[in-house]
Design a binder for these strands. Structure first.
Lengths: 345, 345
DNA sequence: GGGTGTGATGTAAACGTTTACATCCGCCGG
DNA sequence: CCGGCGGATGTAAACGTTTACATCACACCC
């Protein structure tokens, strides 16, 4: 009972075959005589044999693992504050499902400190066949260093990475344009305020740019943007600054929009009658808040799935021109923009 | 440029040292002369060397990876329907954070078919130092088969596993008792209805048992339970069956409670004035729904963290009596039970 | 100045698989 | 009966690290 953990050799001996045969029973079952296969299976069962993944990976040069590296900005103490995490959960789920279909498992690792991202990425990469770098976890140095294996950057900063590594992002510009156009054309708003995200977020930058461009194109004045940090808290703060209340407030994410709506209601301002509020991201919460939040949905699971697809593609064919995938967003019209309430949330 | 990926040997040659020294530079940096270390670092940098995790794992007999195996019951097509997934996300996050502190990464894998759970678990286990089996993903056969490495079962079925494998679960009984007692003693309810979960869920079973026991102890009649499937949908269905409307409805999870409240409101029944509704789980949504849901919070992240702790403990000391951890729940009183609305959600 | 302890580094044998290649055997057509 | 063929299995050489052990240089002490 205290025996060493059994290896292929033990299984082989017990089944009266060679190690090669055991190996084949594990991977190419159909290349074996049914009787032999059965004997091997039995030996495996009896010994409680577990293959050693490291040894398999060493010779086969593949781990059947895809890694995901991201920044964890949540507060370990409180369940709340995990705003950005919802996004990550969605991507993880999308990756997991796509990977599963292709026979891969997902290895996840996070860091709090962006400076530690490189080390983590290296450590993950050394155990995977490919790696996904999420958002800020993708400094150029890391990408450079990992270039020996397939790398996909998701929602990365736009700067120099462009054009030399596979990327997946969301079409922030199209989504924002669609959203703002709705406010202008359907609801006839002309006074729009903007509550933006942190300067170092590429998403925030793209959304703001599109917001501005759309207003300009419509011949409307572009307001000075308020700059928040993507939390409900700054959304609420914004309510105090917005005075006089404009016709509509466009928020760079849902969290801030919800914080804003709540604070507005506390101040006695009616949404959407007196002011329309819209968000961006399409988090689940937006459906349940009253008024239900009009927003632009980010396809989080498809993002994860696309990353896996890109990885797997490059695993098959190494030299391929880098892909820069832009996934479409979806405008979700609910009540907070002033549209009539649909039948059900 | 099309050269083979570099190994310790290449690094060693380039740095003018032996492979052993390179290895030490990677793990026991402080055992090296600073100058040597620097030369090795440089060689690594220049060659773009990435250590091979498989090879490392092979000799060191540890992967620094902890696996998580669970059932994915969500619908890949719709973002919704991922009810149970919220729970899993919480556990994953808890695991990831706890693992990170100890230098582990998390390998996750899911299956849809419970029968495939064993194969998946084996495949994950072969690449990890320990494995967590979540809920239904833990048939006894799997646990038996994996026994060569540390296994922790989280929220498993209660049956025979008990007492021979490390487990983490939530104290459903205490939570339910506290909740029902609140309804009885604070709000004076005497007519309580119960909307339960599927028969094959150990959590559901424990909650129902505690509900019944508490009523009995209080000398109140025990109603026939309605049996739902943990979705908002069955919660809504329950609204039609509940007639005449009782004083309070206790639901086995939040999703059903929310579905029920919505349907009740549609029927013109006021919550909590005419009927109190309470849930179980403490999902985020419950905070934002109106009236805010009174519920029992499951500490999902602590569950994940506890699983990692147990795993790591057993990694250090193999023969230890099995632990059966019961994590405490927390009663969260909000508005749906009839309590005055607190200051903010 | 020989023994001896110490800290830095080299040597080479595992680690547990996979897989190219070799072998064996039975069968078929000529 | 022979040559060849193909399917099933065995043999043994990698795969890229880690690590026990050996070695070496040096300084120290009596």
């Amino acid at each position: 009972m205290t025996d060493k953990t059994p290896t292929v050799h033990d299984v082989a001996r017990r089944a009266g075959v060679s190690t090669a045969t055991v190996s084949r029973a594990l991977s190419d079952a159909d290349k074996l005589h049914p009787d032999t296969l059965e004997r091997v299976r039995q030996a495996i069962e009896e010994l409680g044999y577990l293959p050693n993944g490291a040894a398999r990976g060493l010779t086969s040069r593949k781990t059947r693992v895809l890694a995901l590296c991201f920044l964890d900005q949540g507060d370990p103490e409180s369940d709340a504050g995990d705003d950005a995490m919802l996004y990550i959960d969605g991507v993880v789920r999308g990756m997991e499902r796509a990977a599963r279909e292709r026979g891969y498992a997902i290895l996840i690792g996070a860091v709090q400190d962006p400076d530690a991202a490189l080390d983590l990425a290296v450590s993950l990469a050394s155990r995977a066949d490919g790696i996904v770098l999420l958002g800020q976890a993708a400094p150029s140095s890391a990408i450079q260093r990992l270039k020996r294996l397939p790398v996909v950057v998701v929602a990365g900063r736009c700067e120099d990475d462009q054009g030399w590594v596979d990327q997946v992002r969301v079409d922030n510009a199209a989504g924002m344009t669609e959203l703002v156009t709705h406010l202008i054309e359907v609801h006839g708003h002309t006074r729009l305020a903007y509550l933006g995200g942190p300067a170092d977020s590429p998403d925030a930058a793209e959304r703001w740019a599109a917001f501005r461009a759309t207003l300009t194109a419509a011949g409307l004045p572009v307001p000075l943007p308020l700059v928040g940090d993507f939390t409900q808290h700054t959304g609420a703060q914004a309510a105090e600054v917005l005075d006089p209340v404009p016709g509509a407030v466009v928020c760079a994410n849902d969290q801030m929009a919800i914080g804003l709506m709540t604070a507005l209601r506390d101040r006695g301002v009616r949404v959407p009658e007196e002011v329309a509020v819209v968000g961006f991201d399409g988090i689940d919460l937006g459906r349940h808040v009253r008024p239900a939040l009009t927003t632009v949905r980010q396809p989080m699971q498809p993002i994860g799935a696309a990353a896996v697809t890109l990885l797997e593609r490059r695993l098959r064919v190494r030299d391929l021109p880098p892909e820069d995938l832009r996934l479409p967003t979806q405008l979700i019209i609910r009540a907070s923009c002033g549209c009539p309430i649909p039948r059900l949330a």
